[in-house]
Structure formats: structure tokens, C-alpha cells
Simulated assay, not measured.
Amino acid sequence: MDRRDLLAAAGIAGPLLPLAARAGTAPSAGPVQPDASFDLWPGDAPGLRDRNFQDHVVVRNPDPAFPDRAMDHIRTPRLDVFRAKNPNGAAMLVIPGGGYARVVVDKEGYELAPWLAARGITAFVLFYRLPGDPWQNPSNVPLADAQRAMRLIRHQTARWHVDPRRVGAMGFSAGGHLCADLATRFGRTVYDPVDAADAQDARPFVAAPIYPVVTMDPDFAHMGSRTLLIGKDPAPDLAAEHSPERQVSAQTPPCFLCHAEDDTTVPIRNTIALHAALKAAKVPAEAHLFEQGGHGFGWGPRTQGKPAHLWPELFLAWARGHGLLG
């Protein structure tokens, strides 16, 4: 199913992916969709190798009460916007995961974005290009999209009632890697400027890698993400460049981290290594290690009744202390 087929099946028109979302943990009474959506790049994204390549959506659970959809090919990276109900000037770039093989839509995107919007934070869900698709410089296309997204948000702050200084980033699993990559390599040149938006700063005000893939060290990397991003046998300097724990500097923004100890997909050592690197660089950082939660717990039924379910509230309290909410 491609994006157009998904829209037709849902019986709506327009550029958005309609989804049912949860308010709290109860099923939604009807479909929820973003308030707006816009592409990251004018025309095709840079470095497209195959003009026949198209967006593609996989519906993994068709139940509209508990949807599970993912994009496993992305030709047109974009931001879907959930406007804050009562804007406080803060914004978050929300980066879903998917092992760099896909970008999930519901659990780590459309589920959390309304939660942020209800608390005054305008949320921008990023659908970023995947390194396994036909792009030049594939290992850097996710970062190029994340940098471009931050710059576009800041370029359009008047439109969204956002303070350009208070734009953070949050990512999950492989999206957590991209969030940490953005937090450490925000100034790296990975694409040529295309318009005035690219004069903006790509550094997040705060960053929140959640159960993140971090290292490219094969001893405790998530090997699926590693292989797709940098190949099976990368040169040591390429592996180091894409290991955020090795790219932390004094300019890295404050970071909020959380991970479950029973995560059998992405070893908790990823978060521990990143936290240690942040502390060594004297970057403000807070880490929460939950006993239970597994991998990909997002904010939903998997953690209902467990401490890990409270991580968004912990993040909000931490972010308030660092000035995100003004």
C-alpha cells in the first residue's frame, strides 16, 4: 500500500496520514490526524538516485482503535504538525523509530504528539529518509532530514507560535539514534543549503533519546540499524562518526534519557554509554533506567501500570527545569 492508497482506503483527501490515536490509554472515538503537513525539501530531496522510487506504507494492524502503521520507503520526507492547544512557545521535533528499515507512525509519532500538544508544546513528527533506499550518501540522509526539519521549524516559528530558541528533539529507538546524532552533529555539513531556512541553527534546545540505538560498536550495537546505516563492515572512522557517544562535545544540548533494563532488542548499555559521555563532557543529563518495559514501549498499553508509563511526565518536569516551557 502506498500513501495514496492509504488515503483512499481511509476515505479522506489531502496529504496527511489519518490515524486513530489514544487519549490516555482508552481507544479513540474516531480518527485523529495532524493539523498540518509539509514537505522538508522543495521538489525532490537531494541525492535521489531512482525517479521511479515512491513512498510506501505498511499497515501492520488495521484496527482503528489501536493502529500500527509504518512507512518502509520514504521518497518525500515531511513534517506532520500537531498544534499546541494553548501554545507556551515550546516545540518538539518527534522522531519515530523503526530500525532504519522503516519509520513507525503511531506508537512513537501520532500517539505522543497529541500528548505534547495538549500540554502547550507544538509537536512536529518527522518522516525521514531511510539509508536502505536509493539515495546518495545514504548514511547521512536521516541526519540531513533532521537538520533540515529543525531549520524549517525555526524558519516558520511565527506561523506555529513557537519561540525559535525553544525547539527540542525527541526520538525513539533508531529515531533515538537520529535524535542523539542531531544533538551531537547538528553542525556537520551533510547537505548543500537550498533556501533561506538553511541559515537557521539545527541544534536542539534539549534532546530526549528514548530507548535509543546509540553506538556502532558491534559489541553492543543494534546490528540491524548499524548494518542499514553504515554497512556490514564499516571503516573505523565511519563507525565512530555515527556513534553519538563518541561525538558528544560541550556544545551538545542537555539530554533526557530513558531505557528499560529488560530491553532485549537494544541493549541498555547504549543509554549508559551515552549518559557517561554526556557527564564526561559536563553536559547536563538525566537518565531513567526502568526495571520493566522491554523495547519500543512508547506511551501506551505495554507499560500501563508500570513505572515506565510515567516517562513523559518525567521528561516534562525535566524539560521545565531546563527552560523548554519558558
Rank of each mutant, 00 (worst) to 15 (best):
G171W: 08
D198K: 07
P204F: 06
G168A: 14
D195M: 07
R188K: 15
G176F: 07
P209C: 05
V167C: 04
S173A: 14
V214K: 09
M170N: 07
S225F: 13
P193H: 09
P212C: 08
A221I: 09
A197E: 03
D195F: 10
P212H: 07
P204E: 04
F186A: 11
A221W: 08
D163Q: 05
P212M: 00
A199V: 01
D217N: 15
T189Y: 05
G171N: 08
V214A: 13
H222P: 03
A169Q: 06
R188D: 15
T184H: 14
D198N: 11
T215E: 06
D195G: 15
A202H: 04
D192M: 07
T215Y: 03
D195C: 08
F172E: 03
D163W: 01
A199N: 13
T184C: 15
S173D: 02
V194F: 01
D201T: 00
G171L: 05
Q200F: 07
V214G: 13
T184I: 00
Y191T: 05
D163S: 12
D219G: 12
V213R: 15
S173N: 03
R166N: 11
D163C: 01
R203Y: 02
G171H: 10
Y211F: 13
D198V: 01
L178R: 10
A169E: 07
V167W: 00
M170K: 12
F205K: 06
H222T: 08
A180T: 03
I210R: 10
G187D: 15
A169V: 04
A202D: 03
A169I: 05
T184L: 06
I210E: 14
D219T: 12
L182D: 04
F205P: 00
T189Q: 13
A169M: 10
A183R: 06
D181G: 03
D195S: 05
D181R: 15
R188Q: 14
R165K: 14
A183S: 05
F186M: 02
T184W: 07
V167H: 02
D201V: 01
A183I: 06
T189N: 06
I210K: 09
A174W: 08
D201E: 10
A169Y: 05
A208E: 04
C179Q: 06
R165A: 14
F186T: 01
S225V: 00
A221N: 11
L182V: 02
D195V: 09
H222I: 02
A180K: 10
D181P: 00
V213Y: 15
A174F: 12
P193K: 09
D195R: 07
M216W: 13
R185M: 01
D195A: 10
D192W: 13
G168D: 02
D181T: 15
Y191K: 01
Y211H: 08
R188F: 00
H177Q: 07
D198P: 03
G224Q: 07
V213D: 08
C179G: 03
C179D: 14
M216P: 00
G171V: 05
T189D: 13
V206Q: 01
D195L: 05
D181W: 10
M216K: 12
G176H: 10
F186H: 15
V190N: 14
A180F: 05
D181K: 14
G187R: 04
S225I: 00
G168V: 03
M216I: 11
G224W: 01
P204L: 07
A202P: 13
